[in-house]
Design a protein around this nucleic acid. Structure first.
Lengths: 99, 99
DNA sequence: CGTGTAAGGAATTCTGACACG
DNA sequence: CGTGTAAGGAATTCTGACACG
């Protein structure tokens, strides 16, 4: 829950490339396809977190399995969607109890 | 014990500067005075870990307290020295038991 | 679709030095 | 001693485009 080192966006694309084994081109492309969301410095350079790096490795594995970028994105949307529904359910239940 | 994100040298000096509030000049100077030991990329750019960043904050505090760089280094040497002695003691005890 | 690459430019970092105190 | 700064150069990163398939 507490944002630790894992979520701090401090890694440049060159380092991210080294850590993941992906080319910078690939990493930028996955961003273009909305799979990864680095922050930017004032100057415009990308900054990733360790969580992002893990996500990139995950993406790389799925790509190797022949999955396409839009499928990976859909998979992510499904998860977010599920979380939303569950949260809404929780809120709803809490509401009813209040009455 | 297990090297986690905290010890990976992945942070450039600009980011380290932002995280610590120290100037790049100060950070490089503390390295010159053997207080901090970043890694280098092939091209020669410095790379710090989160542990390094914490260490820098620690150094900054001590500097604010009026401590000088050589005092901070000595303090560090004392700790290392103590650890060495304790380790040697442990080994020695183990040796005796073996006999 | 996913990725490599050459191109030109901008942001980032490096070192050694001078300055102040 | 500790830090700021201007200087010149090198490493890093950025974008948009062409290529291949």
């Amino acid at each position: 829950m507490t944002a630790t080192y894992k979520d701090k966006k401090v890694i440049s694309i060159g380092i991210a490339s080294e850590l993941t084994g992906l080319s910078e081109r690939q990493i930028r492309y996955y961003e273009e396809r909305k799979l990864i969301f680095p922050e930017r410095s004032k100057g415009g350079t990308r900054k990733y977190s360790f969580a992002d790096v893990e996500r990139l490795v995950d993406i790389a594995n799925k790509m190797e399995d022949g999955m396409q970028t839009f499928e990976i994105r859909k998979e992510e949307m499904k998860k977010t969607d599920l979380r939303d529904k569950m949260l809404r359910g929780q809120l709803n239940a809490a509401f009813k109890m209040r009455k």
